Measured scan of single mutants.
Amino acid sequence: MAAGGDHGSPDSYRSPLASRYASPEMCFVFSDRYKFRTWRQLWLWLAEAEQTLGLPITDEQIQEMKSNLENIDFKMAAEEEKRLRHDVMAHVHTFGHCCPKAAGIIHLGATSCYVGDNTDLIILRNALDLLLPKLARVISRLADFAKERASLPTLGFTHFQPAQLTTVGKRCCLWIQDLCMDLQNLKRVRDDLRFRGVKGTTGTQASFLQLFEGDDHKVEQLDKMVTEKAGFKRAFIITGQTYTRKVDIEVLSVLASLGASVHKICTDIRLLANLKEMEEPFEKQQIGSSAMPYKRNPMRSERCCSLARHLMTLVMDPLQTASVQWFERTLDDSANRRICLAEAFLTADTILNTLQNISEGLVVYPKVIERRIRQELPFMATENIIMAMVKAGGSRQDCHEKIRVLSQQAASVVKQEGGDNDLIERIQVDAYFSPIHSQLDHLLDPSSFTGRASQQVQRFLEEEVYPLLKPYESVMKVKAELCL
């Protein structure tokens, strides 16, 4: 049975990233139509530049190519590739079939990587351009969430054990800070992308030097003109047959890092959902379990974690691919890159769409948070109580021993009897502590235990987050809708 299948058929496997999760716009960027249309555009740009620099290419040939950029006979191309065992030459023939007058000058002087690699770089750039505003929107939604809850005390956790208090907004800023680093890295790697350009079979530009009869300047002009037509500021000066596969490492490393950030955020949300302090959106008709109707599973956060793990592992592909590119190139890269580049971007696209949807509907339960604080705060307040007693004339050592005994009794009630923490009640009825009984409410005010959390939130948002989001103001209103 021949390899390949009808990918629109229910009898043929289709990647869930495309069929179930990723956005239509990201799927289109990695589609065959987008790819092969870009090949034709690159052939047109090459012909236009070659004509401008004096090669015998007519206006009629150029116009014929322009008129057929979208006229792609995919069936013919597939048949040609089956016959020739070469995808680029299959599309040269297919393009030439609908451009008979231009057929002889299509791909003039070029090698397969002229269309293959340059198209990949265009796709990487455009895919990054799709991700950047999506990530900015996630940051914006979380920034709104953090600002609104900047002063809401909550129990902090280290080692997932109760620690000092923080605020809900401050905790959210930990998430935002990681995503801001990801946004900066995505922008950097996007701006650092260079075009492969017009380089020939081993990167020496020998074929173009021959076409222009040894004119170095025209060869350099050709490279520059096509690079500018493709919208790049610069091209690699040095290439082998391909652009260095280190570029793929750079791009997928940034995406993998984004995956790590999203995994951490969504894990926190899942843990908070278990504590009943916070939940992701839950639709009115949504079913959490087929057997347990009360369940409210954090399905979206779980999906993000599941896909983020996949995204983090994909960076190993370009690392290994770059390491086995012998001399000017081997074909070890080809099949692998067809999979890992598309999957990385479709996965990143999915987790950003999902995280935006989550961040637009996060639900906080202040009463649950308050109750958990009441359970733990008495123990945390013991040092403040000791200091207040010393100020009232008591002995630190005597007070410490009193607190120690009462704390152990209260802990026994919590752990052995399943009761509430009654340390404060014990202190309130103990005559030894009568000098500070009137101060206990103040000493137990949760806001006095959150330090500068709310001020940190305000400063972080104003100095770091809002300036970073400013270039994306025009796209901030787009909502994230999930079908599944």
Rank of each mutant, 00 (worst) to 15 (best):
G214V: 06
S23V: 10
L423K: 03
D73Y: 07
A348S: 09
T382Y: 04
D117P: 00
T227S: 11
A388M: 05
V390I: 04
H310R: 12
F460V: 06
K75S: 15
E60T: 10
R190Y: 08
L222C: 11
V115D: 03
R396M: 03
S15T: 15
V368N: 04
L461V: 14
P435V: 07
Q409G: 09
C180S: 10
Q61H: 13
I265P: 01
T321C: 09
G96Q: 03
G156N: 02
Q356C: 15
S67A: 14
S140W: 13
Y466G: 13
V457D: 03
R452Q: 08
S323E: 03
Y365M: 08
Y243C: 14
D120G: 06
S151D: 09
R141Y: 15
D445L: 14
K229R: 07
P56T: 11
D117N: 00
R459F: 09
Y243D: 00
G288H: 05
E148R: 10
T244A: 11
E277I: 03
Y432L: 07
F282E: 06
G200M: 01
L482T: 15
I386R: 01
V465P: 00
S290T: 09
A150G: 12
A453C: 11
G116C: 10
Y294Q: 07
Q210I: 14
E279W: 01
I238L: 06
H91I: 03
E81R: 00
H442V: 14
Q397I: 08
N274I: 04
K170M: 07
G5C: 09
L84I: 06
A410P: 01
S257M: 08
K187S: 12
S151L: 12
E148M: 10
S395F: 06
R338M: 03
R149C: 11
Q285P: 10
F28E: 07
R20G: 00
C180D: 04
A342Q: 09
K295F: 01
T450A: 07
R459P: 06
G116A: 14
K246Y: 02
L461S: 03
M387K: 04
L124S: 09
I237W: 06
D422T: 12
V115Y: 01
S15Y: 15
E80L: 06
G200W: 01
D120K: 06
L469R: 04
L255T: 12
L346S: 09
L352T: 11
L341W: 10
S301M: 13
Q458G: 13
A235T: 13
L352D: 03
V363F: 07
V247Y: 10
S448D: 12
R396I: 04
T94A: 14
T38A: 08
K233P: 14
F449M: 04
A291D: 02
V168W: 06
R188F: 11
F449K: 10
L46E: 05
R296G: 02
S306H: 00
F327T: 11
E383Q: 00
Q455M: 13
D144A: 14
C305V: 06
V413F: 13
R37G: 09
Q177T: 13
G116S: 14
R196H: 14
K246E: 02
R459Y: 09
I385G: 03
T38G: 04
R245D: 00
P133Y: 15
K199E: 00
V457S: 05
K224Q: 07
E70L: 10
S289L: 01
Q41K: 14
A260R: 03
R426I: 04
M225Q: 13
Y114C: 08
D178K: 05
E48A: 05
Y21C: 02
K134I: 07
G394H: 06
Y114Q: 04
W326S: 04
F74Q: 10
T450K: 06
N336P: 01
T166N: 05
L352Q: 07
T154H: 06
Y13L: 13
K264I: 02
R245E: 01
R20C: 00
A136I: 15
A110R: 00
D87H: 05
P435S: 10
E376K: 05
T330N: 05
A480F: 15
A344H: 05
N118R: 00
D216Y: 07
I358D: 06
F327N: 06
V390T: 07
R245C: 00
A291L: 03
E50G: 09
E343N: 12
R374S: 09
R171S: 00
T202H: 05
K284E: 08
E328L: 02
